[in-house]
Amino acid sequence: MNNRLGKNLAQMLKGGVIMDVVNAGHANIAEKAGAVAVMALERVPADIRSAGGVARMSDPIMIKGIQKVVTIPVMAKCRIGHFVEAQILESLKVDFVDESEVLTPADEQFHIDKHKFKVPFVCGCRNLGEALRRIEEGAVMIRTKGEAGTGNIVEAVKHIRAVNSGIAELKVLLKKKQIIKLKEKAKEYRVSNELVLQTAKLGRLPVVNFAAGGIATPADAALCMQLGVDGVFVGSGIFKSNNPEKMAKAIVDAVAHFNDPGKIAKASENLGKAMEGQEIATLETKMATRGV
């Protein structure tokens, strides 16, 4: 409904870190560390992964509890395609809904028609086509999917690069004035010509784009930033580390100073053990492949 205002809120989050929190204590640590928003959920992705079964929207009481203790924006996740969970989250006045592959998808064919909502939506993507489809459905913020809950940055990097190269391709087509080929791209991506043209002209996604999934250290976060994202989501990487307070602050500092290796080095000192990482090949469930 009001696309513009949600887009603007996402702009205010740029350069920031959004942290997954499962209780008020976590939320306080996140705010103190300098998070620009928190994602309220019952279990961090690493625990969702190990618990198995169907993962759903969090209990409203849990979300309200987080809203009470922080002054920064509160986001919450609904299942892909589960527009009733989204309606519930909107009624709770969360500041952003994340239609997320970390939860078990509710619809194998359709994502939520996000234009019908007043609350803004962030969605995941693995490549430019997925990003543009989500934007056309009404997402006002994108996150490039990593493999959530693994502490392994490799998938995030792969997908950031995929989005970047998709955009680079459009830029070349525009420069060569190959309008027919741009239209073919729009068809391939199943989105409007206007959106493809707009993206080609801007040379970036027309909405804010964060990295998410697999970020476990300050260096991981800065890597994503240098690859061109506007900010980062950190899920399990903070509260599955040995010293969440320190890790949270260190990642905030690394994102703020992402181009300054000296400062990232300083942020990386004495953090203790980062979260346990997992090889992608050994995973039973790949979350990032959900919702294309």
Partner: peptide, 14 residues
Amino acid sequence: PGGESTTLHKLCER
């Protein structure tokens, strides 16, 4: 700029 005043304060102080 716009953003979160809590975050801005912390980063400036640090």
